[in-house]
Nucleic acid binder design. Structure first.
Lengths: 249, 249
DNA sequence: CTCGATATTTAGTGCATCCTAAATTGTCCG
DNA sequence: CGGACAATTTAGGATGCACTAAATATCGAG
């Protein structure tokens, strides 16, 4: 019981935890400025909030070094993510809500909907395990299959996936290139690096030289390849030993 | 254009406007302390908020005298009420959401849902004109049929209605009494007075002496009787000349 | 190993919203 | 008409969360 009350997180708090969770998952660590970028707030604001969240047991903060979610923080983040994805799924599948607005709508509703409503929607949907973008929906007790990534945008740095399809109408040049060199059935891409938040990615396709692509990552569908590289291969969230590129010392 | 931006009302602001609207409709006026009672905040807080809302053109405030919604304020209140009622209807009818929790859920969602989502839900429901409690749902352009009241709780002071049915399991004594003396088919009740917020009511049934009842008003279904008494009989919201018992001078 | 570029934190503020306690005003009764 | 009492407003704070500007720490280059 590090966290105080059961359902008393403010909207900003939920957003911070969610963003930190996502950064940790994708980059292995979350720095002040990355969080600031993700939430579109000033770095100094992040420092302040981080201090408070650390005091409340949602994360560990080593000044000038970075943050790590605690179990409580991860649980809170996952609950918010579950809400978000259930909502997106419901809005899309049941209400036929327009694609381009589903995300923002869910972003606002996720803070207002009760757990009860969310479970009600989940039931109506037949307890889906992934949202319309293919992202996994955490279970009620906070378990996610972290290995499921459906687009390049969801890949963690250092991980490899099998490219499945490139579906987009924008940026036809790069897409043609990708289709040419990479879409031999089952081609594999490895995410070498990524710009701070949702910027361009650096990819290695097969054994070729790494290339830098603009961010159409969300258009490239992939299927995960079990990478032995970075130690852990856990599917749950519990004891996840601070992934690949967190600097020790 | 008295109100500044289109969709930039905070949650507290929407709640204040909604409460003031409801008080104005039911009592003909809204005093600081009634608003405070309705929102469970200190009277001093109401004064402060009222000052701000008046400055922004949502209401007129005569210090020590009370508040009146402006057209802008009424429009904002009605939009929130529309959201609330559409949400309640959807939760109840489509999701089978438990009765006792619909209200609170809608209360939170109404501040987060976009107009677009609300219209989407309304369409899915076939554009209902009243919510599960029988309360009228304002239209998109802010029109309500103020004459529709389905329970005694919705009756304005001074108005008369025909009692239709008493449906409740609690307070059997009073109910039996009501059934005895008042439920001759088509008996009429007039609301003489009501306690500050949702407290007991004073009713006159037919020509009998007024009686004071505890608040089971929500259990007594009524059907409106057009009362000629208080001047206006408008069905819209626009030029509604400050109902019955607002003290002039 | 020192220096500078960059990341991070501290300091000092602002705004929205709430609170309590202390004036102030309005009303109504004798 | 003059209080007394209730309703209301003012004064003075507190909290959450954001911001800017000014320190300060870290890290990679030379």
């Amino acid at each position: 019981m590090t966290a105080p009350s059961p359902r008393a997180l403010t909207e900003p708090v939920e957003d911070y935890l969610k963003a930190i969770y996502e950064l940790e998952r994708r980059n292995g660590a979350a720095s002040t400025s990355e969080v600031a970028l993700a939430l579109a707030v000033a770095p100094a604001s992040v420092t302040g909030m981080v201090r408070r969240l650390a005091a409340q047991g949602y994360l560990d903060h080593v000044p000038y070094r970075g943050v790590q979610l605690t179990a409580a923080g991860r649980a809170a983040a996952l609950r918010t993510i579950r809400r978000h994805r259930i909502l997106e799924t419901y809005l899309t599948q049941v209400l036929g809500y327009p694609w381009d607005r589903v995300h923002d709508e869910a972003e606002r509703l996720e803070h207002a909907a009760s757990d009860e409503l969310i479970e009600c929607l989940a039931a109506a949907l037949g307890h889906p395990t992934s949202d319309p973008h293919g992202a996994p929906i955490p279970t009620v007790d906070g378990l996610v299959d972290e290995r499921v990534h459906r687009t390049l945008a969801d890949l963690a740095v250092g991980h490899t996936a099998r490219m499945v399809r490139v579906a987009s109408d924008k940026d036809p040049d790069l897409l043609r290139y990708l289709a040419d060199i990479a879409l031999r059935p089952g081609a594999e891409v490895t995410l070498v690096a990524r710009a701070p938040y949702d910027g361009p990615l650096t990819l290695r396709i097969g054994e070729a030289q790494p290339i830098v692509g603009p961010n159409l990552a969300a258009q490239v569908l992939v299927e995960p390849v079990l990478t032995p590289a970075p130690a852990s291969a856990a599917s749950a969230t519990e004891p996840k030993p601070a992934a690949s590129r967190a600097r020790r010392r």
